[in-house]
Design a protein around this nucleic acid. Structure first.
Length: 107
DNA sequence: TCAGTGACTGTTT
DNA sequence: AAAACAGCCACTG
């Protein structure tokens, strides 16, 4: 049995460059569709995970960078996403539907 | 042990 | 349409 956190890490690490996913999608992919809070909680600890997890590619269902304030620095999350070709406007992912990556689609 | 909180989401008022 | 409520599970005081 792989722990909840392990699954979260695994899924998030599968998010291709230039794409993003949502907490709900990940939670649903794992099983507990309404445990999206736990996904956030796990990602909060992802900083000390090995190997590192691209938590900046995980946003809420509106494409809003809800976790931005948890990254070191003011706009590190936004910078990382923009560095991968994702455009951010007002803490929100532009063309969210186009850059959205569904974990179920890859599994 | 109880109550409050959190990187969320879906349903009901 | 906007706001409130309810589920979810782990952690902290």
């Amino acid at each position: 049995m792989v722990s909840f956190a392990e699954k979260v890490y695994e899924v998030v690490r599968k998010i291709p460059k230039g794409k993003v996913s949502s907490y709900g999608a990940i939670a649903r992919c794992i099983g507990s569709g309404r445990s999206s809070r736990m996904v956030g909680w796990v990602l909060n600890h992802s900083g000390m995970a090995e190997p590192p997890v691209p938590a900046h590619r995980v946003v809420n269902r509106n494409g809003l960078l809800s976790g931005k304030h948890h990254f070191p620095g003011e706009n590190l999350m936004q910078s990382l996403l923009e560095n991968e070709g994702i455009k951010i406007n007002d803490n929100q992912v532009q063309d969210f539907d186009k850059v959205f990556w569904d974990p179920m689609q890859n599994l």
